[in-house]
């Protein structure tokens, strides 16, 4: 019993310390991304554009493909149940709303977490092992401004863009089913889908995607900065950056889904 309490206590303590450390990093990143440029402390625009290409533009093919599949799967699954009630035509509404409110932002975030949280952790972890972070600090350069801000800015801008791509591709995936299986005219599908959507459906998804972007940056960079030891440490940090960011994304998604359900 005693050792169980020690186990629970130690893990709770580690958890609080982890969240505290990450919140500190998130706060610094937000300051250097949003406040410091207004105070004339500059922003590393070129590096941010480079990161946008790496994290955003290069992710478009995989995000599109997966969103297309998810849209199609969603259409199959909803039609399976709706046809019992003769309501297969509502597949369109379901696909459009579910993709924009939920699956578009969530699938995008999971893909970006897999691609970018891991690459942030590996990059910063390797820099730490190679004393590059120490070198940066001894030059009098702020590692948050130099390394985290371009990544943060890139994801803040690219996550909503990727989410929009995923929304569109998901709805397109649904149209494959309705056109082939139900014989619904393609134009009618899109008209109906757009009619089913409210602006708040799309906006709530985009707001979530920005939060997911912050989570991915904070977890990936925090894991990278916390690397201990050599190559093995980098490997461990890379793995946990993906696991932790996906868990945090789903937890945040649950919170926001509840919030939007009740207040918006």
């Amino acid at each position: 019993m005693g050792s169980f309490l020690v186990f629970v206590g130690r893990n709770s303590f580690d958890f609080v310390r982890y969240v505290g450390g990450m919140a500190g990093l998130g706060k610094d990143a937000a300051y250097w991304t949003l406040v410091a440029p207004l105070r004339g402390k500059g922003l590393r625009g070129r590096a941010a554009i480079h990161q946008m290409v790496l994290t955003g533009v290069n992710a478009i093919p995989i995000v599109s493909l997966i969103a297309l599949f998810v849209g199609l799967i969603l259409a199959f699954q909803s039609a399976y149940e709706l046809r019992k009630y003769g309501g297969t035509v509502f597949v369109v509404n379901l696909v459009a709303v579910a993709m924009t409110r939920q699956l578009g932002p969530l699938m995008t975030a999971v893909i970006v977490a897999g691609r970018s949280a891991s690459s942030f952790a590996a990059e910063l972890g390797t820099m730490k092992v190679n004393e590059e972070l120490d070198a940066l600090e001894t030059m009098g350069l702020n590692k948050i401004k130099f390394l985290v801000v371009p990544k943060c800015l890139a994801l803040l801008i690219m996550m909503p863009c990727l989410t929009l791509v995923a929304d569109l591709m998901g709805i397109l995936g649904g149209s494959v089913f309705t056109t082939v299986e139900l014989g619904m005219p393609y134009n009618y599908y899109w008209t109906r889908a757009l009619d089913a959507l409210l602006l708040k459906d799309i906006l709530s998804g985009l707001i979530k995607s920005v939060v997911f972007g912050l989570i991915i940056t904070a977890v990936g960079c925090y894991e990278g900065f916390s690397v201990k030891g050599g190559a093995e440490g980098v490997g461990l940090a890379t793995t946990s950056s993906v696991v932790i960011s996906i868990t945090a994304i789903i937890a945040a998604d649950m919170f926001f889904s509840g919030l939007f359900y009740y207040i918006w």
Binding site: T126, M127, E132, D134, E137, T138, M139, G140, N142
Partner: peptide, 21 residues
């Protein structure tokens, strides 16, 4: 204050610590 001071100091780390990218 430290950053101001560090600008007057140069360091060569054991591995060179060049930015790999």
């Amino acid at each position: 204050e430290l950053n101001q001071l560090r600008r007057r100091m140069g360091v060569l780390f054991q591995s060179g610590a060049l930015f790999g990218s």
